[in-house]
């Protein structure tokens, strides 16, 4: 399942990573308009970014991150052609990961 899109670009020694994940990101506060029952919380809790197998950044998320989350960050020490890997885990134990080469 390709739920993650990654764009990573190295320029002047700094790599900018932009990533889009597809996820419902339910807060647990929203109600179903038909049944009136609360929709249970279902959101990504942890996102890990690895550069050539080393963790460069970890993000902890609550339900207040928008649906189909976007995340961008920058790090040093990578060259073009290196691998960047993004992994996410949600509060229901589901997860996914994807890898891309830095341009």
């Amino acid at each position: 399942m390709a739920s993650i899109k990654i764009r990573a670009k190295a320029k002047d020694g700094v790599t900018t990573v932009k990533t889009l994940m597809s996820h419902a990101m339910e807060t647990g506060l929203r109600k179903d308009s038909k049944t009136g029952k609360k929709i249970p919380a279902h959101h990504i809790t942890e996102v890990t970014a690895e550069h050539n197998g080393n963790v460069v950044m970890t993000a902890n998320w609550g339900g207040a991150i928008s649906k189909n989350p976007y995340l961008s960050f920058k790090f040093k020490g990578a060259a073009s052609g290196d691998k960047i890997k993004i992994t996410w885990v949600d509060n229901m134990g589901e997860g996914d990961s994807a890898e891309a080469a830095i341009k």
């Binding site: 700094v14 950044m57 609550g62 207040a64 991150i65 976007y70 960050f73 040093k76």
Partner: peptide
Amino acid sequence: IASANVSPLTSTYMLTSACEPFVSTRIKM
């Protein structure tokens, strides 16, 4: 942090020394 949200904390990012101090995302308010 979005102060008026039911749970104000939206996200926390743990940066390693390799990271530039930069984070961008989209939050709900």
